[in-house]
Computed example of a mutant assay.
Amino acid sequence: MSGVYRAPAFVFALLFYGVFLTTKAQTPTPSPAPTPCALRSNTSCAECLENVTCLWCTPTKQCMDYPVRNILPPSSVCPLNDARWGLCWVNFQILIITMPVVGGVIIIGLCVCCFCCCKCERIGNKREEVQVERQTRARNSRQKAKRTEMQLRHDEIRQKYGMAKDNPYARMNDH
């Protein structure tokens, strides 16, 4: 019986020890300070955009800090068609046009999916209602047939023993 409890205890101890060692081994190391964007001017676009906070202006070959106070960089800093951020092959003008279009397509797609799901659910509910109604009608017709059959059987028994009712409103004592 003690062998049964040893295996889970050993596995638990092994897992605990492994977790303890991995958390201790993952001590954060200080990352080197990124070089300022201005020092990357007159280099390449790829080298400038290694730092996410940098903006590359193609005609002047300047690397500058992204103007975070503005959503888009003003044209006094760099024209939108020549400004690069994140990727060297995407300029802001294309980014401004494509992002709303892509967002709109995604939103319209989600709305269509929701509409189709709701419509399918309604169709499914209508089918269920029709099926339930059909089953109810079938059950009622079976009940009516059984009731009629029982009534005929009772009438036969009454006739057999001479208790047939000619007048359904007559009292039983009169016979």
Rank of each mutant, 00 (worst) to 15 (best):
G109L: 00
M99E: 05
N70P: 01
Y161R: 06
N125A: 15
C113D: 09
L80Q: 06
A145G: 01
C113V: 14
I71W: 05
C117L: 14
G124L: 04
L110W: 09
V101I: 15
V112I: 15
W89Y: 13
A83Y: 00
V132M: 11
I106D: 02
D155K: 02
E121W: 11
T136C: 09
G162M: 08
V130P: 01
Y66R: 01
T148Q: 09
H154Y: 12
R153L: 13
S76W: 06
P79L: 05
E128I: 10
R139S: 13
T98W: 10
I94L: 14
L110R: 10
L110G: 08
P168I: 04
T98P: 00
P73R: 00
Q143P: 00
K126Q: 15
V102I: 14
K146V: 05
C63I: 03
I107T: 12
P79Q: 05
V90F: 06
P100K: 00
P67C: 00
E149F: 07
D155H: 01
R139T: 12
G124W: 02
A164Y: 05
R69F: 12
R127W: 09
I123W: 11
C116Q: 14
E156P: 00
V77W: 00
G162E: 05
I123K: 13
S75C: 02
V102Q: 06
R84L: 06
T148A: 11
Q151A: 11
R122Q: 14
H154T: 12
M163L: 13
C118P: 03
K144A: 15
K165Y: 12
P67M: 01
V130E: 15
R158V: 06
F115H: 13
R158W: 06
F92I: 13
M150L: 15
E156C: 07
K144Q: 11
Q93T: 14
E129S: 07
P73I: 05
R153I: 09
E156V: 02
P79T: 05
Q93D: 09
A164N: 09
S141K: 12
D155E: 10
C116V: 15
A170L: 07
A138H: 05
C114P: 02
R158C: 08
V90A: 04
Q143W: 02
C113I: 15
I157N: 06
E149G: 04
M163D: 08
P73M: 00
I107E: 08
P168W: 01
I123H: 11
G162H: 07
A83S: 14
M64Y: 00
K165N: 10
E121L: 13
N140M: 14
Q143V: 02
